[in-house]
Each structure stands twice: as C-alpha cells, then as structure tokens.
Nucleic acid binder design. Structure first.
Lengths: 197, 197
DNA sequence: ATTCATTTTAAACACTTGTTTAAAATGAAT
DNA sequence: ATTCATTTTAAACAAGTGTTTAAAATGAAT
C-alpha cells in the first residue's frame, strides 16, 4: 500500500467517525504512519483530500442503488429490492448517512456539485414508472417526488438516529442490525399499502 | 436585554447555522456586542454554553409534541395532529433536525443524558394505544417502535435533506415549505394505510 | 558512478482557538 | 462619600491548526 492509499484509508476512517472539523491532519498522518507534509504533497490541502473522500464514499455506495432504481422490473419487486439493498449497504456502512448529512449541511455546494450526487438522489425513470402504473390503474395517483422521499426517509433516517435508538431500547450492535433488518419488510409494506388504489 | 440573554441569543443562531466546531467564541461575542471574557464569566466554558442551548432548543420544541403523543384521543386523530404540529414546528425551526442529528453524532452522551431527550424520543403511552387498538381489532399488529420510527422518519428526514431537495427540484424557500406542508396528508395516509387490518 | 526527478523528512511559519488574569468601571447599600 | 460586590474590559496565555520551506533520502536511468 503506497503513501497515497495510506492517507486515503486513514482519512476515510477519521472523517467518517469524527467529521472534517474534528479531524486534524496530524491525526491522519499519525494513523497512516506518514509525515504530515505528505498530505499536502499528494493532496494539495485538507479540503481537497476531504472532497476526494466524499467522492469515493458516495460513489461506491450510490452506483449500484441507482441501477436498481432505473432497472426495468416490476414496481413491487423494485421497491423490495431497492429497500433491501439500500439497507444492506447502510448496515455495512453505518456512518455513511450521518456523514453525508453533515457534509450537506456544512457545505451544500460541495455535495451538490459532485456528479455522484445524481446517483444519490434522482428519480426520473422511477417517476415515469410510477406514472405508468397509475395510468394502467395498478396504483393510485402519487407525487413521485414525495413517494421517493418517503422511501429514502424510511430507509435512511434510522441510521442518522442510531445512537438514540440503541440507547433508548438498550440495543446491542447486533440487536440494532436485526431491528433494521426487520424494517425491510415493514418499509416495503408501508410503501405498497400506500400505493393501493 | 441583559448580557446573558445577548450571549444566548447570538450563540443560538450561530450554533444552529454553523454548529459547535465552526462557531468561535469571538464570533459569538462580536455578534452579541460584548467582551469575549463575558462568555466565560456567565457560562464557564463554550462547552457549557453549548449544552445550555441544546437544552433550550430541544426543550421548547419537544414539550408540546410529547403532550400530543400522550394525549387520550383517537389514534387517527392523534397521528394527524402529531404529524401536523411536528411539521409546523420544523417549518418554524428548519435547522433543528440537522442540529440535533449533528449533536447526536458528535456527542451522543451529551444528548442522551439530557432529560429533554425523553420528550424527543419516547413512545410508552403511544405503544400501549397501538396495542389496545390491535386487541380491539381496529388495526393490524405492528411493532410500536418501528411504527413510531416510521412516523419520525417521514416527518424529520426531509428537513435534514433540505438543501438537496431544494437544489434538485429548484425550489424556492416558499416552494419547499409548500412541498413539506403537502407531506402532512401524505404522511398521514401512508401511516394509516399501513395500519389497516 | 552520476544524474536527476520523485519522495520523504524535520522544522518553522502564521494564524486561530478557548481560557485566564488582573485591573477598571459600575452601581446599589451604608 | 465610602464601601464593596458585581460586571466589564484589555491583554496575554498556552496549545493547536493547516500549510510551507528547504534540505535530505531514495531509487531508477544514464
């Protein structure tokens, strides 16, 4: 593993855990076992390093999900798959939601200007599908923006609230994951029952 | 307005807008038009000032909502009122969700140890009501924790995503508020349709 | 073996941070 | 008018920040 990779790896962990402001370049360098100056040698600034990592983190997570949302499959099946895969991904990356929300509220431009954001929040094809299903009489008329936002809220918000949920219910890590996994079906049923004509 | 109040007022605005880390005591003092040292004279540290403001912000917001959740009224009516009042409150305090989530992820203990947190996330009476309605055959069997979390997610998450929603749909401030207001009924219908036996 | 670009190092820089100090101002009670 | 606790002020402190500098080490190409 070369220096650049070491920096990225250490910085990713620290930025995820403590955010941009509370992570110092000295801490990153120390964790990566490299000299501080190398941070500015490979990336020109802490800021640029951060943007690089935002891009990496969101890019990896969003790509496969976007594919599901755009796939040409049955609506119910799509909602089920999307919910399931999204939650699986977040269980593997439990800090991702808070990280993205933190960036979004500190540097909205920073997130919005990224191409990966399109994958993070886009609904064009999905909206068409919802409209088609309505015209076919399969579902009731819904605002696709609102419906997609509902889906996203039900999936993501619990991870932003993780600490509170764990504390309040006295969950262990495993119990939290189980609680979240149970949500897959609940979220699916919630969304589908709303769509019923 | 005395010095203490001036500090609280200025600090509240800045902490809400920029968070704890990116707000300096000098900035607060400057905005309040007072000497820096007065911050440590009235509050012993920036940290304590912050905790004071957390308490104030959450306390004000959570109290009335808790009352609705605990009230002895019809379940449908309760869900409708809770959703409506919660969203009204968040439209008046659009930065509150992000603020609370930021605190929750940086200093979980800080939030959890506060008494006001009980009002922020507690479901005891509401859970009983859900169970009762199930026994009466009025609704299907649901996990109260999950159902309450759904409610909270649908209400709160859009405010955490505000910047992205505005950007993506090219909303003005007023259009965002309208979009959110439309959600009241959508959220109500979503939750109710899921409860149908 | 020498050259030379790439990579690494230690040290310093300029700046901001929260907090403390000790003196000064204020204003009500005697 | 004096006392004295409360409040305000200016200045300094110690520590931490991201970044830059210039010298040193490295290692492949000549």
């Amino acid at each position: 593993m070369n220096t650049q990779e070491k920096i990225i790896e250490s910085a990713t962990v620290l930025f995820l855990e403590k955010g941009f402001d509370r992570t110092s370049v000295r801490e990153i360098a120390s964790k990566a076992n490299i000299n501080i100056s190398l941070m500015n040698y490979y990336f020109r600034s802490k800021e640029i390093l951060f943007e690089t990592i935002i891009d990496l983190l969101i890019g990896k997570a969003a790509a496969s999900l976007k594919d599901i949302l755009d796939a040409e499959i049955d609506l119910n099946e799509k909602i089920s798959q999307y919910t399931g895969k999204y939650i699986d991904m977040l269980i593997r990356n439990p800090l991702l939601v808070s990280f993205v929300l933190a960036v979004l509220n500190r540097n909205p431009e920073k997130l919005i200007k990224l191409k990966v954001t399109d994958n993070l929040y886009t609904t064009k094809k999905f909206s068409q599908q919802l409209n088609n299903e309505y015209l076919k009489g399969n579902i009731k008329k819904v605002d696709p923006e609102q419906f997609y936002l509902n889906m996203l809220s039900l999936i993501s918000f619990p991870f932003a609230m993780k600490h509170l949920i764990i504390e309040k219910n006295q969950f262990s890590q495993e119990e939290f994951d189980r609680f979240i996994t149970e949500r897959k079906e609940i979220i699916y049923n919630t969304l589908i029952s709303y769509l019923k004509p």
